[in-house]
Simulated scan of single mutants.
Amino acid sequence: MRPAVRWSLIAGAVVVAGVALRATVFRDAGIEVETARVSRGAVEDAVTNSEAGTVRARERARLAPALGGRVIAIPKREGATFRAGELLVQLDADAARLRRDLARRDLEAARHAVAQARAAAALARRDWDRVAALEPQGLVSAGELDAARARRDEAEAALRAAEAREASARSALELADHALRDLRVVAPFDGVVSQRFVEVGETLAPGQPALEVLNPRRLYVSAPLDEMDIARVRVGLPARVTLDPYPGRAWQGTVSRVAPFVNDVVQQNRTLEIEVELALDPAGPLPKPGTSADVEVILDRHDGVLRVPTFAVIEGRRVLVVQNGRAVARDVEVGLRNWEWTEIARGVREGEIVVTSLDRAGVKPGAAVRPAAGGAPADTAKAAAGAR
């Protein structure tokens, strides 16, 4: 074989080998991207708190005796539960009991005095009636008639005075009973003792707090919303509450109060306070008052709609669909959206794969891409055909 022919064949073989290597070994594998499948599910339109909210007890009170005195008993310590009406604090009541016993005896004496005055008044009225009946016959003098009238009036006045003293004694006994009750602090509702401020043997002044109590089963969340969301929030809307100590768990609730004014203490961060009543799960953990909380107020909800992750949507109107190893731009019409999901009303088909890592270098329409390991498969030719 001539040398020229041999070198031509060698050169041709090299070219063919290069083309084959480029098509196989050195083929562009594409940019590795994170992907998600277009699927059906729920999408909510919601607003969230601008700063951390706080779990609070709807029933919470600092309890104090109406009267002062020395503490002789505190049956419940911090963390102890109680029922409404149960004794929580008892002050020394010896002197108050003596005053009540004295008031009871005074009332008994007053009742006896009324009975005596009533009998005397009845006798005086009978004497008057008898004398008055004899007066037309001229059998009694004017002086005797006047004397009988005076005795009747005096007896009736004495009866009224005795009845007034009885009423006063009855009121004194009621006051003594009230004083005894005011030396006791009883539970206003079912709950738990959260704080104690005194110990047995200490002296309390009237109105000085002895305990703080709360009902851990009537909870709400107080949270600030940005003033831009004021017009969209109203009482009665459903809400979802999450707590940092319980990741992955959410509590349902209802907006029960929207503040009538905007908090403008911080000029650059004007907020509106809302309250959300918590619906407790009997089988779940019981949130602790004082825990920080995040609130989502659900403004609207669409179930069973096509949706994609919100961070897969470009400028609110376009997605990149993985088709034949390429990122293909697709205009879409969106519906409800939140930080996690966006509803797609038109433009993609269920089952198609969209790129979610839009910030990755080189990711743009027409770029060669491949789903990351564990991501959605890239073969969506059938779904793409159906979306056209």
Rank of each mutant, 00 (worst) to 15 (best):
W339P: 09
A133N: 07
R301A: 10
R165N: 15
G304K: 00
R60W: 07
R360E: 13
A367R: 00
G201I: 14
V43R: 04
V319K: 03
L159S: 14
G85K: 02
R218W: 11
G30T: 14
D303G: 02
A11P: 10
L102D: 15
D146W: 00
G347A: 03
R58W: 13
P238W: 03
V33T: 07
A378L: 06
A84I: 00
S39V: 15
T291Q: 04
Q208L: 08
V255H: 10
G290V: 07
P285L: 11
L173P: 08
D129M: 11
W339V: 15
V71K: 01
E212G: 05
R37W: 09
R234M: 00
T291D: 04
A187K: 04
F197T: 01
F311P: 11
F189S: 06
D331P: 15
A231H: 06
A148V: 03
D146M: 08
R301F: 01
V14S: 03
R104Q: 14
D182E: 09
A66M: 09
V140Y: 08
V192F: 09
R56C: 15
W7V: 15
D190V: 07
R83W: 03
D303S: 07
A158G: 09
A293L: 06
L237S: 13
A148F: 00
L21D: 08
A158E: 10
W251L: 13
P238F: 02
P188C: 02
V38I: 12
F261D: 13
R100E: 15
T54V: 15
V185L: 10
A384W: 10
G284A: 07
L175V: 12
E212A: 11
A120N: 14
V258R: 03
A29Q: 15
A122L: 12
G362R: 00
P188V: 05
I74R: 07
A132E: 11
V43W: 04
T310K: 03
V334I: 12
L278A: 00
D28M: 07
A158W: 02
